[in-house]
Each structure stands twice: as C-alpha cells, then as structure tokens.
Amino acid sequence: HSHMSHTQVIELERKFSHQKYLSAPERAHLAKNLKLTETQVKIWFQNRRYKTKRKQLSSEL
C-alpha cells in the first residue's frame, strides 16, 4: 500500500469535485501528472465515491 502525498490528494480531490467518474484516458493522464499508477487513481476514486455515498445515506437518516 503506497502513501499519497498531501499534494496528490489535493489534486485528486479537485478533480473529483468536477467529475466523479474518469474515463480511462483521463485516468491515465491524471496518474501521469501526479506520478501515481492508474490503479491508484482508480481505487482512490472508487473509495471516494463510496465515502460520498455513505455520507449522503447517513445524512438522510
């Protein structure tokens, strides 16, 4: 499990705020920019979407 830097997370968050789903080319581009693997980016987005979904569910209770 590799640790992401604060800067990388900020960039991922910024991208996520604009779009929740990335196409393969977008993911490849973002990964390259942030010096991450595409898998890391993919998993981060999956986890981030899951967290957002959970938060929405709990706020509706």
Rank of each mutant, 00 (worst) to 15 (best):
T39N: 11
L36R: 00
T7K: 14
S23A: 05
E60W: 07
Q19K: 12
P25H: 13
M4F: 11
L36A: 01
K42F: 09
Y21P: 01
E26M: 05
K51M: 13
S23F: 02
L36C: 05
K32P: 01
L34N: 01
S2V: 10
M4G: 02
H1I: 08
T39F: 11
R54N: 13
E38M: 05
K51C: 15
R27N: 05
Y21V: 03
S23I: 02
F45N: 00
T37P: 03
Q8P: 01
M4L: 09
Q56V: 08
S59P: 14
L61K: 12
L61D: 14
E60L: 15
S58T: 12
P25S: 15
H3E: 10
K42M: 11
L57R: 09
S17I: 08
K55C: 15
Q8K: 05
L30R: 00
T52P: 13
R48N: 04
Q40L: 05
A24W: 09
P25E: 15
H18S: 11
L22A: 01
S5V: 03
E38S: 05
M4A: 03
E13C: 13
R27P: 00
Q40C: 09
A28C: 11
V41I: 12
W44I: 02
R49P: 01
E38G: 02
T37K: 02
S58C: 15
S17W: 07
H1N: 10
S23N: 06
L61Y: 06
I43Y: 07
A31D: 00
T7F: 15
P25F: 12
H1V: 09
A24T: 07
Q40W: 03
T52Q: 14
S2F: 14
K32M: 11
M4D: 03
K55I: 09
H6N: 08
Q46P: 03
S2R: 11
K42Q: 10
T52R: 09
Q19W: 07
Q56K: 11
V41R: 01
S23Q: 03
H18F: 08
R48S: 04
L36H: 02
E13D: 03
E13F: 07
R54V: 11
L12Q: 01
R48K: 13
K42E: 15
L30M: 06
K35M: 12
S58G: 12
I43F: 07
L22R: 00
E13S: 03
A28L: 09
I10Y: 11
K53I: 10
T52L: 11
K32V: 10
T37H: 04
Y50F: 10
F16L: 03
L22G: 00
F16Y: 15
E11Q: 10
K42A: 10
T37R: 02
Q19N: 10
Q19Y: 06
K32A: 10
S59F: 06
K53R: 12
E26L: 04
S58R: 07
L34C: 05
A24E: 08
L36K: 00
H3V: 08
A31T: 02
S17C: 15
S5T: 14
S2C: 15
L34E: 01
V9E: 11
T37N: 04
W44D: 01
E26A: 06
W44V: 01
K20F: 04
Q56H: 14
E26T: 04
L30I: 06
F16V: 02
K53A: 12
E38W: 04
R27V: 15
R49M: 04
E13A: 04
S2W: 13
R27A: 09
A24I: 09
K42V: 05
Q56I: 08
T7H: 13
R54A: 08
P25T: 14
N47R: 14
H6P: 13
K35A: 11
A24R: 12
T7Y: 14
Y21L: 03
S23K: 05
T52S: 12
E26I: 04
E60S: 10
E60C: 15
S17Y: 07
I10D: 08
L12R: 00
K35R: 13
H29E: 15
K35D: 09
Y50W: 11
L61H: 13
L12C: 05
K15G: 01
S23D: 03
W44L: 02
N33Q: 14
T39D: 12
K55M: 12
R49L: 07
F45P: 01
E11L: 09
A28M: 07
V41C: 04
K15W: 14
V41S: 00
K35E: 07
L12Y: 01
T37F: 03
K20Y: 05
F45G: 00
Y50A: 14
T37C: 03
T39A: 11
H29T: 13
A28P: 00
I10H: 12
T39W: 14
M4C: 10
R48W: 04
N47D: 07
Y50E: 14
S59E: 14
N47I: 12
R14P: 02
S2D: 08
R27K: 05
S59N: 15
L22D: 00
H1M: 09
S2I: 12
K20N: 09
Q46E: 13
T39Q: 12
R54T: 13
S5P: 02
T39I: 11
H18N: 08
S23H: 02
R27D: 01
E38I: 07
Q8H: 03
N33V: 15
Q46I: 07
K35T: 05
S5Q: 04
H1R: 08
R49Q: 04
